Amino acid sequence: MKPTLVTDNLTLAYGSSPVIEELDLIIPKGQITVLVGSNGCGKSTLLRSLARLLKPQSGSVLLNGQDITSQSTRKTARELAILPQGPVAPEGLTVMQLAKQGRYPHQNWLSQWSSEDEEMVEWALEVTGMSSLKYRPVDSLSGGQRQRAWIAMTLAQGTDILLLDEPTTYLDLTHQIDVLDLLYDLNAEEGRTIIMVLHDLNLACRYAHHIVAISGGKIFAQGRPEEIISEELVRNVFRLNCQVIPDPVFGTPMCVPHGKGRLLRSNRLTVAGG
């Protein structure tokens, strides 16, 4: 049975200032859920709490019906894996050594390193395009390569739930699409439940089955992209005027910001006309 992840009246805070308040959320099993919202709205804070990295001020996160804070770290790590923002590897650690850390939750004094562990690590390195760099120190890599090395470690953990905070950070457009395609395939082929924070709303609409738009520490809207993404939502959640049109390739909602476009276009026409 696929694991379940829900929040019950969840309030998260740093000090006395609430970031998320009384949140009830059900993560759809076997789907890709993307958390979106403006900077500081609580997306990453919520993701950290779902991964048992931040203790609730009140309420709870339930994994398979049990409070996640009452479960052991090892047990939780066999069910879900998280890629946080800006992880830092110890100096001199190689890509291979980093990827192997993803298998530690599966080790104990009775079950040491196995052929299955080796296969999972090699697979994770292969699908992230890091096999040729596996003996390189992580701190010698470019930003994009380091990000892919961390994603390899997360995949090597072999969990049914993946939580990723901005997995496309530091990646150029080609590698952004490669990573999101990989996650989409993992979901489609293996039924993994994937929860991501993405800043790019158009990519979120393209890859998500379920979008959760957060504003002011609460859920502004949630559902399928085509059901909830609108000019009104973008205006209220992101404080941005835009036009929402169908993506010409996939038909999913695509946000075209108004921004300063007319002013820039006017200036260009003035310059071109002398």
Score class of each variant (00 low, 15 high):
Ile161Tyr: 00
Glu189Cys: 03
Asp185Leu: 11
Thr159Pro: 00
Thr168Met: 10
Ile214Thr: 02
Ala156Asn: 12
Val237Asn: 11
Asp178Val: 03
Met196Phe: 02
Gly191Thr: 08
Asp160His: 14
Leu162Gln: 09
Glu189Asp: 14
Glu189His: 11
Leu163Ala: 08
Val212Tyr: 06
His199Phe: 09
Leu180Asn: 12
Gly216Tyr: 06
Leu162Gly: 08
Gln157Lys: 06
Asp160Phe: 02
Tyr170Trp: 15
Tyr170Val: 05
Arg206Pro: 02
Arg192Ile: 06
Glu166Ala: 04
Ala213Glu: 04
Ile214Val: 06
Ile211Thr: 08
Glu227Arg: 09
Tyr170Arg: 05
Val197Gly: 07
Arg192Thr: 05
Leu201Met: 14
Arg192Gly: 04
Ile194His: 00
Pro167Ser: 11
Ile228Tyr: 12
His209Ile: 07
His199Met: 11
Asp165Ile: 00
Ile177Gln: 01
Asn202Cys: 07
Leu203Lys: 11
Gly217Ser: 11
Asp181Asn: 15
Leu162Ala: 10
Gly158Phe: 06
Phe220Gln: 08
Ile177Trp: 00
Leu186Arg: 13
Ala221Pro: 06
Gly158Thr: 04
Gly216Lys: 09
Glu189Ala: 13
Asn187Tyr: 02
His175Asn: 15
Asn187Phe: 07
Tyr207Glu: 08
Phe238Pro: 11
Ser230Gln: 04
Phe220Val: 03
Lys218His: 14
Gly158Glu: 13
Leu198Asp: 03
Pro225Ser: 10
Leu155Pro: 00
Asp160Ala: 14
Ser215Ala: 14
Ile211Trp: 01
Val212Pro: 09
Leu171Lys: 06
Ile194Met: 07
Ala204Thr: 07
Tyr207Arg: 08
Leu233Asp: 08
Leu198Trp: 00
Asn202Ile: 08
Gly158Trp: 06
Glu231Asn: 09
Leu173Cys: 03
Arg224Phe: 02
Asp178Leu: 05
Ile214Lys: 07
Gln176Arg: 15
Ala188Asp: 06
Val234Ile: 15
Tyr207His: 10
Pro225Arg: 09
Glu166Gln: 01
His210Asn: 13
Leu183Cys: 11
Glu227Ile: 02
Arg206Ala: 13
Ala156Met: 10
Glu226Trp: 01
Glu231Gln: 15
Ser215Glu: 14
Phe220Cys: 02
Leu201His: 05
Ile228Phe: 06
Gly158Ile: 06
Leu186Ser: 07
Cys205Pro: 03
Ile195Phe: 04
Gly223Phe: 06
Val179Gly: 06
Arg206Ser: 05
Ala213Ser: 07
His209Asp: 12
Phe238Lys: 11
Ala156Leu: 11
Arg239Gln: 14
Cys205Ile: 05
Ile214Pro: 00
Leu155Asp: 05
Gly216Val: 09
Ala213Ile: 00
Cys205Asp: 07
His209Leu: 04
Pro167Glu: 02
Leu201Arg: 08
